[in-house]
Amino acid sequence: MADDGRILPLELRGVSFAAGGRTILAGISARIEAGPATIILGANGAGKSVLMRLMHGLLAPSGGEISWNGRDGAAARRHQAMVFQRPVLLRRSALHNVTYALALAGVPAAEREALALEALREVGLAGVARRPARVLSGGEQQRLALARAWALHPEVLFLDEPTANLDPGATREIETVIRAFDAAGTKIIMSTHNLGQARRLGDEVLYLHEGRLVERAPVEEFFRRPRSPEAAAFLRGELPWL
């Protein structure tokens, strides 16, 4: 769907965000290129979710600038999708949750169902296409959220701790779908608490500490030899056996 020009690279220049008198992010500058899957790591409250919402345009920065290959956020949003920690599904069938997203994306009515079914097949939900979305299991609901994103063929997919509420089996299934996005050329930008997942899915890590971007490194390097004392302390805390 990115036929009218790519939206990457994403450029953040001195981005800050404050709410209720509290600074949540400060001075974030980064250039995010197409290609490597980007993992945003950090302790609770480090600002991971807020950073992704700023990138996706759900929040407006209090300071600084965010631009998508020179375009503003609103124009670029159509080429992005986001999957949240807890999927928000509508009270209609799995299939119609996907066709709804396609309708909003301006896909002609005649094409929606075929595209939606293809997306459901991709995540392994073709068999429950006609079931009401809200009665699916937690893992199936999250896969449906991924199918909804898949149908849109986004250039960038944001994932905000997509497996935080899921058991290991469901987590594996979600990771498989995320890999398929990656293989299809979708840029992955994901936050996670699961360091194993970060290593499995990520190519590079952005490490946030108390609202600041303190380290950016290829994933293996980050885990082997973090350069910043904050990231080193975080990894020691999370992986004390290292």
């Binding site: 999708a81 928000v88 709804y100």
Partner: peptide, 12 residues
């Protein structure tokens, strides 16, 4: 409150 982010993300 529950749906806002998802709907805005989808462009509604």
């Amino acid at each position: 409150r529950e749906y806002e982010e998802q709907l805005r993300s989808l462009g509604a």
